[in-house]
Every structure is written in C-alpha cells, then in structure tokens.
Design a protein around this nucleic acid. Structure first.
Lengths: 132, 132
DNA sequence: CCGCATCCCTTCGGATACTG
DNA sequence: CAGTATCCGAAGGGATGCGG
C-alpha cells in the first residue's frame, strides 16, 4: 500500500455532502449492517441459503431472539429474502438478495482485513495495557 | 458484478477455522472497529491529523465522553497515534498509524457501498413497512 | 419448527461538574 | 484545551414460556 494516502473518494464526499454528520444517511445503514450479528448471519448466508434452526446452530452463541430480530432487520433492508414452505412442520429459508450479494465484496474486505491484522491488534492491545 | 457469487475466501476460511464463531478473534476486532463512532473518527482522520476539540466540532453530535473513550480504544488497537504537545494550553494531536491507514481501504469500501446503495435500502425499508 | 411476548440484567451513552 | 468522574436514563440482549 502506498505510504501517503490511498482511500476512496466517496468517504470524503460523504463528509462534504453531510457536514453535519448526524444527518448522514450512510451512518444509519452502516450501524445496522456492520453490527455483530448481521456480519455473522451474512457470512453464513454467503455460502448458501439457510433455514432458521440451521443458522442458530451454525452461529452457536446467538439467542433465538436476536436471530429473529436481526433477520427481520436485514429483510427490511432488502439484503435477504425470506421464503416460507408450508410443510408440517413448517420450514423457512433465508437467502441473500441481489442487494445482499452486492454487499459481500465490501464485507469480505473488512473480514479479510481483520483476519490478516488481528495478531497485530492483539499485540498492540497487550502493549497498551503494559504501558498503563 | 457477476450474478453467481464472488466473495473473498477468507470469510469462509475464518468460518472453517473457527467453527465455534464465538471464539473467532475477528469478531472482537470488527465489533470495535466497525462501530458507529470509530467509523466517523477514522473517516475524519483519513483527511488529516486532528486535535481533540477539532474532532469534537467536526463530528458534531459526539459527546466528549464517547470521543475520549473511542479514541483510547482505537489507540489501544494501534490504529491511531496520540501526541501530546506540552504547550499552554496543552494540545493533543491524533493521527492514523500505518495500521490505521491500512484499514482505510476496506473501510472506504463499506462507506462507498453504503453511499451507493442507501437509496435502495431506504426504499426497501419503506415497502417493508407498507406490507406490515 | 419457527417465532412472538415478557421479564430482567447489563451495557451504552448523554449531561453535568470538576482537574491539570 | 483536554481530559476524568459521577449520575442516570435508554437501548441491547439473554432466559423463559406460549402459540401456529
């Protein structure tokens, strides 16, 4: 990476367009989408469609309450599609929408970065505590 | 974007490496870094170094408490550097570290995506409410 | 199997007042 | 100017029990 600076223009343009950052619509989108549970759910759905119980088991430590809630939010945002199969017992499938798939690229960029740099961050945290 | 699927490998590899997602170190990193205030601060520092009061005014609706706290966390993670100038009155400068700058690319990818797609998301949200 | 409703505890985060 | 300390309301999120 070039030492100087090499970030995209939209980030600064967003800041120019919304000098009062509290009014920036991008913020509301990011808050929802970059949240802990959303990332895990979208990461799972990146592989293949999932049923409710599958997702629950796969993620492991998500409560059924948060799973339901986050799935609804992602559905409301148009990132995932929900299909009910009226079998007995009923089964419900969740899959990424085209919009949701378009989000995988920036999402995986974040995940990739975290995956690559978390050792450096852990080290920085440890040293920061030693100083204090 | 290709219709099929086109996401990076690390996302799936992270899921394979940490089948129990609750143990995944990437999660802790993301939670901290992709949070609301962190994104705003890093976006500001992407332009140039800032002093404390400048950041506060620039972001606008961040409380001094959260600004201090988030700056400390980002510093602990090694993403920003803090320099004290013992003038009177004292002044403190915050700037991105090399690690912090390396994060701008994935961060701006997210911001760019949000900037481009928030109209679609707003529309999806509105329609979702109409259905209900 | 999928999900909603309730209770309840914990964390987030703003407001205010006070130091070097 | 750049913080720290305290108080307190708001929101996040787990546990449990019921319904389609």
């Amino acid at each position: 990476m070039r030492p100087g600076l090499s970030f995209k223009e939209n980030m600064q343009e967003a800041r120019r367009t919304y000098p009062d950052a509290s009014q920036c619509p991008v913020r509301g989108v990011l808050d929802q989408i970059a949240s802990k549970w959303s990332v895990l759910i979208l990461s799972a759905l990146a592989e293949r469609p999932y049923r409710f119980g599958e997702l629950r088991r796969d993620i492991g430590d998500i409560s059924q309450r948060m799973l339901t809630q986050t799935l609804r939010d992602l559905q409301a945002d148009g990132l995932i599609e929900r299909t009910v199969f009226p079998t007995t017992p009923p089964s419900v499938e969740y899959k990424l929408s085209p919009l949701g798939r378009s989000f995988l690229l920036p999402l995986s960029a974040m995940v990739d970065w975290a995956f690559e740099h978390f050792p450096a961050i852990d080290k920085a945290r440890a040293e920061f505590r030693k100083e204090a």
